[in-house]
Structures are given as structure tokens and as C-alpha cells.
Design a protein around this nucleic acid. Structure first.
Length: 322
DNA sequence: TATCCGATGGTAGTTTAAAG
DNA sequence: CTTTAAACTACCATCGGATA
């Protein structure tokens, strides 16, 4: 479930980020990045980067590059660099991670203990954790696979084929709530947890059975659910709500604040469809407040959905938090 | 026969260290 | 300090065996 905007956003690879940092720290780089579209643009349209006179293999920083780098890349680079060191992954330019890969590695690192105990085969892990890239991804991306193996402190993935049961968590020591997220996007922005003073949970795919075994201690916090507002997301919410009810706990769905960014149900990579054979798409009206029902009715009527990650978590949380 | 899978070797790119 | 050379790492195409 991904919108087109993902494809448009510039997703730099680690070698490029590192080369840009070299240009900042050493004023030059020999990295082979001159064919990268964005670098070509900088060379052709600005004075920020240029080939060194007499040696076209070397790029040098021009006037204003320092300020440009600090404004656009420095904080992200430092963030990734510190993480890779912390995880014991040598941050050299040979690691062809994408930014999304690194953010995913961060989530894996945060939940490494839980994941270690619940591993299955590499295709399953790749498909569920690297869902933006598919089940074959880890197998063929050596540097990413090696990074995962390093983080989990294992030599290889097991061959087993049981269902993967895991919970990805971004922790906060004194949380005022737990937000359960259908997708991993908010977990990849762990500053959310700090800013909002919450814990973020992602339960593996459609596998919410693990909620039956959550430690009692966790259930004392107010719980919220963040999801795509499509049939699939809302239906999962109903099941989660009922599971937690059995544990004596309530959970509140996070309603997106206005203005809503509606998307058509047939958008790219969106597979969830409303069921027009039954009223209210077969959802239980009792589960939702009148305001929530109003939004859902509109979505069904106009065949729309709201993607979880188009919402700003902070705004959505304070809109719902009491 | 066609396809899948793992092994293998070549290649491109990076890093490190030595030489200029 | 800059350039060159060697060592290393990851990527990719290919090949042959196994399997359906």
C-alpha cells in the first residue's frame, strides 16, 4: 500500500550520501557518483559541485556548498552514520543501502531481541520487514542482508516456514500511550516516539494473534490504532479491538484530522476494496463513533481511502488524545 | 525441455597504504 | 599533500546440475 509520492521522493543511496559528506568534510570526493541524476543536476545547474580542473574523476565543492549541505543533508547523514556505527556496521561507501533500507535497519535494530527469537526463512522476513522491496530482496542484496545478519547476530536465516510472529517496537521509557501502527512508516521516524512520549508498535502484517500474549504490564497504557482508512485497515481494527477487549483493555482508532488527503481505491499498489454487496462494507457500525462513521460512509460512497502515512502522526495524535 | 538454484569468476567501485 | 597501486567488497552475468 504505497502511493505514487513514494516513487517521486528522492531516495538517496548511502554511497551518494557519503560522497556528499566527503565533499563537505574534505571538499572533494573520488566517488563514482557523476552519473547519478541529482549529482548531474547539481553539476549542470549550480556551482555547488564541479569537476576538478585537470582530473575529471574528482569532484570538488564550490561556493555555498557548505551551507547547502548543512541545510539539506547533514542531519540525515549524521543520523544514519551514528546508527550504522552503533549497530556495528562499518559505514563505508561500498554499502549500497537506500535511505529506506537504513531506516528499516533501524527498526530491526530497535526490536532485535524480539526478532531474534521469532525468525523464519529469509523470504518471509524480507517480504514482511522489507515490504517495499519484496520477498526476494534480502536474498540478492548482499550488503543489506549482511547488515541484518549482523544486527540479529546470526550467521544465516533459518529454513523454517512457520508463520512469523513478531512485534516491532520503538520504545519510550515513560510513555503516556501506545500507538499500534498498521504500517511501519511511523516507526521509521523514531523521533515521533520521543516527541509524543509514546511507544510505537507494529504487529507483523495481518498477524495480530500475538496481541493475545502481550504482557499485562503493557496494557496499563492508553492504546491507539493508526491505520490506512480502507476496508482492510478498519477490519483489522475491529479484530484488534475485540482481542484487547478480551484482555480488559480499550483501544481507540486515530481519526485523521481535516483536511483529509483522499486517494481513489484503485491507486497504485492499493489492493483493499470496499465491499458493496453489504451495507457499510460489512463493518460493524457499533465499533465506530458517529464522527468516524461519517468519514467511513463518505469513503465508501465515493470509493476512496486515506493512506496512513499521509497523516502527520503528531497532528493526528493530539487531535485524538484526551 | 524449461526452469530454478547455487557456485563461480569477472567487474566496478571503495578503502587503505605506499610512493611521488 | 596528491597520486598511484594493491587489497577488499559487493554486484552481476553466466554456467551447470538438479528438479519438475
Amino acid at each position: 500500500m504505497k502511493s505514487l509520492k513514494k516513487l517521486h521522493s528522492k531516495d538517496f543511496t548511502w554511497p551518494v550520501l557519503k560522497a556528499l559528506n566527503d565533499l563537505y568534510e574534505k571538499k572533494k570526493t573520488t566517488a563514482k557518483i557523476q552519473q547519478v541524476d541529482y549529482i548531474r543536476y547539481l553539476m549542470a545547474q549550480t556551482e555547488l559541485i564541479a569537476q576538478k580542473k585537470g582530473n575529471s574523476n574528482i569532484l570538488v565543492a564550490g561556493d555555498g556548498y557548505k551551507e547547502y549541505y548543512e541545510a539539506n543533508f547533514q542531519s540525515a547523514y549524521q543520523y544514519y552514520y551514528n546508527f550504522l556505527n552503533q549497530a556495528g556496521i562499518r559505514p563505508d561507501g561500498g554499502k549500497n543501502f537506500t535511505e529506506e533500507d537504513i531506516r528499516t535497519l533501524m527498526v530491526i535494530y530497535e526490536s532485535r531481541n524480539e526478532l531474534r527469537g521469532n525468525l523464519t526463512n529469509i523470504e518471509d522476513f524480507s517480504g514482511k520487514v522489507f515490504d517495499y522491496a519484496g520477498s526476494k530482496y534480502l536474498k540478492f542484496r548482499n550488503s543489506v542482508r549482511n547488515a541484518v545478519l549482523k544486527i540479529l547476530e546470526i550467521d544465516e536465516f533459518p529454513q523454517t516456514s512457520k508463520d512469523l510472529q513478531y512485534r516491532l517496537v520503538v520504545d519510550y521509557p515513560t510513555p503516556k500511550a501506545i500507538i499500534l501502527c498498521e504500517n511501519k512508516s511511523f516507526l521509521k521516524q523514531p523521533w515521533n516516539a520521543k516527541e509524543l512520549e509514546v511507544k510505537l508498535w507494529h504487529v507483523g502484517g495481518n498477524n495480530i494473534a500475538i496481541l493475545d500474549n502481550i504482557d499485562e504490564m503493557e496494557l496499563v497504557y492508553p492504546m491507539y490504532y493508526s491505520c490506512d482508512w480502507d476496508f482492510h485497515g478498519l477490519e483489522i481494527f475491529q479484530r484488534i479491538k475485540s482481542k484487547l477487549k478480551n484482555r480488559g483493555t480499550e483501544i481507540q482508532i486515530l481519526t485523521p484530522p481535516s483536511p483529509h488527503q483522499y486517494l481513489p481505491s484503485d491507486s497504485f499498489m492499493q489492493n483493499s476494496r470496499w465491499n458493496y454487496k453489504v451495507p457499510f462494507s460489512g463493518l460493524d457500525k457499533e465499533v465506530f463513533s458517529s464522527k468516524e462513521r461519517e468519514i467511513i460512509t463518505k469513503l465508501i460512497k465515493e470509493d476512496l481511502w486515506i493512506e496512513e502515512e499521509t497523516n502527520v502522526l503528531k497532528d493526528m495524535f493530539y487531535y485524538n488524545f484526551k
